[in-house]
Amino acid sequence: MMGMKSDIKLIDDNGLRIDGRLPNQLRPIKMEVGVVKRANGSAYIEWGGNKIMAAVYGPREAYPKHVQESDRAIIRARYNMAAFSVDERKRPGPDRRSVELSKVISEALTSVVFVEKFPRTAIDVYIEVLQADAGTRVAGITAASLALAHAGIPMRDLVVGCAAGKVDGVVVLDLNKEEDNFGEADVPMAILPRTGEIALLQMDGDLTYDELTNAMEMAMDAAREIYKMEIETLKSAYRGDDNDN
């Protein structure tokens, strides 16, 4: 979305995408909870080429003390990319992008957790991007939501992240790396599927009103699909299907 021109054809003559997907098709998604034994709750997600781990610590007493809120818990999400997660090594530690993403993810998660049940505490949510392939913030918030649920933290709903955008003039769901680099727009969202509320919404690029609403509807439809996967993942963990949690 940097306005780079490219000769790469992102949509072929049959209307298929560079990785063979239809415009409204998600990449393959795999989820698992209970991957960090030390944490109160944790989750791992593979979403296309993304590999992301999330862990929750808390509610625990918030430090330093001045960050405490007397009537609620504060949620501190930290989105962090590993140095080796992208083609060109990323300097470790927070950059401006990750500071912004941590902020909007924290706010989105706060909207769904019953924070008023835990005054003066902090719920720390650590999101580690181990391998990045576009859509890391939405995959990350999906993993974070699973980790919160796995930690037994009371929530109004699960959160589902999903993005849509535009490549080669076509509105498409869930952009991959090439599409993100050379596409015309990206609309990352986080949705509470039960009520359809939107907890995270960002957009960059160049879209008409119709394209934008089209993209948002596509992401919200896909969110319902991902929601089912989330619920199934949590259920199977407690049934003990595939791990000992």
Partner: peptide
């Protein structure tokens, strides 16, 4: 009349209908 950037903030949520209206009002 193109939309170039959006950013939602704070601890609450918007419905889709609200977002659509906000985009139109913003235009």
């Amino acid at each position: 009349g193109k939309i170039n950037a959006m950013q939602k903030g704070l601890f609450g949520t918007f419905t889709y209908e609200e977002v659509k209206k906000v985009i139109n009002r913003s235009l």
